[in-house]
């Protein structure tokens, strides 16, 4: 029992550092995208034209934006099922309040962004203080917001001034401005997640919120933050959709509630929280967009596209599990 010579407690087996699980996941999604491109190239030569890729890049924007906010809530082990209704409500408010008046664009958009954030924070409050499961809180909030949207209007409403559609359709050198901005936002959020204390805390809270609380981390603040961010990005998506369609619709967001979860998990963020990279979410959104694009080229009816999407989800999440087990 000499106190000077230390015997290592466990068999010290050198382990080589391999690519991280996140990296493998990104590569897998990338491989799937490449596979689709190869199939597309074989099937039709129009698929490989730059305009086509530019279109896909543009079309992925709305889903990518709403999924970004969803990624953050899922990273903390939560979920936000109010995003769909939130998009619906905020989109009718946006177009209804602007109503073709270009002077109103800026104040309304700022107001909508603030409102979305506030609603998100309200979700977070429900999770933190009411201590209700996020699934239930956000579901309830979703119902309320959908109701309010329908109170405001039951039909498409409002219009947008000239030039407002450039948010959705604007291109510089053939590249979608909205799409590029979205990709940039992803990079910024990723940097925030990796290089700031708060960002790391988001992962820690998702990994084990109990432990995070014991270590004195600001768990509540982080939860408020991610739900607020989810609301913010839902607002961004709402404005983007108004720009794309020219008016707000009271059911504009309905499909986004569950759809926003798909790119998140396909990209490798675990629903249990604390694991995964938001670049996976971005790639997941691109994957779904390019898949739709390919199926359009193949003249596959929309109906069957859904089947394909469902099967892709099944395949992606099954493969994911297999990886996790082996490592």
């Amino acid at each position: 029992m000499s106190a000077t010579i230390l015997t290592p407690p466990a068999t010290p087996r050198r382990v080589r550092r391999g690519p991280s699980a996140d990296m493998l996941r990104l590569l897998m999604v990338l491989a799937l995208i490449l596979a689709i491109i190869v199939v597309g190239a074989v099937v039709t030569d129009r698929f490989m034209r730059p305009e086509n890729f530019a279109n896909v890049f543009e079309q992925a924007t709305d889903l990518a934006l709403v999924a970004l906010g969803q990624s953050l809530t899922v990273l903390t082990g939560g979920i936000d099922l109010s995003v769909g209704s939130m998009i619906s409500l905020l989109s009718v408010l946006t177009s209804g309040l602007i109503d073709g008046n270009s002077a109103m664009v800026l104040p309304v958009c700022l107001g909508i962004l603030a409102g979305g954030t506030l609603l998100g924070v309200l979700n977070g409050c429900g999770v933190v203080w009411l201590r209700v499961h996020p699934l239930i809180v956000t579901l309830g909030m979703g119902a309320i917001l959908q109701g309010v949207a329908l109170l405001y209007t039951r039909a498409p409403i409002g219009s947008i001034p000239d030039g407002f559609d450039s948010l959705a359709y604007g291109r510089v050198a053939g590249i979608s401005v909205g799409g590029a901005a979205t990709a940039l936002i992803f990079v910024l959020v990723a940097a925030f997640l990796r290089y700031t204390n708060t960002g790391r805390t988001i992962y820690a809270v998702g990994d084990d919120s109990q432990a995070a609380r014991l270590l004195g981390m600001p768990v509540r603040r982080v939860i408020l933050l991610v739900y607020g961010a989810s609301g913010f990005f839902a607002a961004v998506t709402a404005i983007y959709l108004v720009s794309r369609f020219g008016s707000g619709q009271p059911y504009a967001g309905a499909d986004y509630t569950l759809a926003s979860v798909t790119p998140v998990v396909v990209g490798g963020i675990a629903l249990s929280g604390g694991r995964g990279s938001i670049f996976g979410t971005l790639l997941g959104a691109y994957l779904l967009a390019i898949l739709n694009d390919l199926l359009n080229f193949l003249h596959v009816p929309t109906q069957i596209q859904l089947v394909a999407e469902g099967l892709i989800i099944m395949a992606a999440v099954s493969i994911h599990v297999e990886r996790g087990r082996r490592s």
């Binding site: 569950l258 979860v261 009816p301 469902g310």
Partner: peptide
């Protein structure tokens, strides 16, 4: 058997069934 999260497994089934129904 595949240890997929129930949320996702049933979401995927929902979408597939929806597509088949549309078709």
């Amino acid at each position: 058997k595949r240890n997929v999260s129930p949320f996702l497994a049933t979401l995927a089934t929902m979408i597939v069934l929806q597509g088949l129904r549309f078709a």
